[in-house]
Simulated scan of single mutants.
Amino acid sequence: MTVSLTKGQKVSLSKDGTSLTRIFMGLGWDVAKKGGLLGGLFGGNEDIDLDASCLVFDETGKQVDEIWFRQLKGMSGAIVHTGDNLTGAGDGDDETIKVDLSKLPATVKSLVFTVNSFRGQSFDKVANAYCRVVDEVSGKELAKFALGEAGSHTGLVMAKIYRHNEEWKIHAIGEKTTGRTFHDMMPTIQSAL
């Protein structure tokens, strides 16, 4: 059963006493439809380029790696971004970041997942945005977080996956911020650690 997360909620990703080895974070979104008949006929909907990123931190809070559309692999191949979707077109996950938890060094404490609007379009233009964590081995969706808050922000610190007592947990953060890349969002990301 999928856990539907709300902002601020924390849950364990280890189910039934088994530890996870491989997961992926999927990000999906659609372009918000403009109202009215004329809105759809005359330049109604434009492509939205959202970008998913994964930032890796050690136990001291120091960033040790970054995985995003300009660096698709990190942590010696333990984290892989499957590619940049420039439009949000299509069903299902638009961008995916795969993580082999078993290959992460013991010094890795947390992974922070962000999403930002590369072209600077606000989330008012985005519909049906979500992120989800899936056990890649079983295909089972473990947690889903709807990013439904429209607004003038251009970035979100979505979620943090972190180690606690030798167990991986997820914290749904959902913190609105601004930035065309995660670099612009670092103060908010640091406060989420």
Results as ranks from 00 to 15, higher is better:
V112S: 06
D100A: 10
S4T: 15
G139I: 11
M1V: 11
A52V: 14
L20C: 09
L111H: 04
M185S: 02
A146I: 08
D51H: 02
G40I: 02
M185Y: 00
C54A: 13
V11A: 13
K33Y: 04
M158F: 03
V137P: 00
V137F: 00
M25L: 15
G155M: 01
K34C: 06
A192K: 04
K62Q: 15
G43F: 03
A146Y: 07
I170D: 07
G155P: 00
H81I: 02
G77M: 02
F182I: 07
E149Y: 00
V3N: 11
D30L: 12
K7P: 05
V108W: 00
G8K: 02
L13V: 06
E175M: 06
Q71D: 14
A32V: 04
A78C: 03
A150V: 02
S122F: 01
L111Y: 04
V64P: 01
A146G: 08
G90F: 03
V64W: 00
A146K: 10
G39Y: 01
E136R: 09
E46A: 13
M186I: 13
L50T: 04
A127C: 01
I48C: 05
K98H: 14
Q9D: 10
L111C: 08
K98D: 09
G139C: 08
C54T: 09
D93L: 01
K169A: 11
D47K: 12
Y130M: 08
G40D: 10
L156I: 15
S12N: 14
I170K: 01
C54L: 06
V56Q: 09
L13T: 09
L50N: 02
P105E: 14
T87N: 03
I170Q: 02
Y162W: 06
S12R: 05
S53N: 12
V108M: 05
R163N: 11
A143V: 07
S12V: 07
D135M: 11
K34A: 10
G36M: 05
Q71E: 13
T6L: 07
K109V: 04
S76N: 14
G179N: 05
E95I: 08
K160W: 04
V115K: 01
A143K: 04
N45L: 13
K160Q: 13
E141Y: 00
I97R: 02
F123P: 05
F57M: 10
S110C: 06
M186P: 09
A106H: 07
L147N: 02
K34D: 04
G77S: 10
D93C: 02
T114D: 04
S19Y: 06
T60P: 01
F42S: 12
V80Q: 11
V157N: 07
E167F: 03
S191E: 13
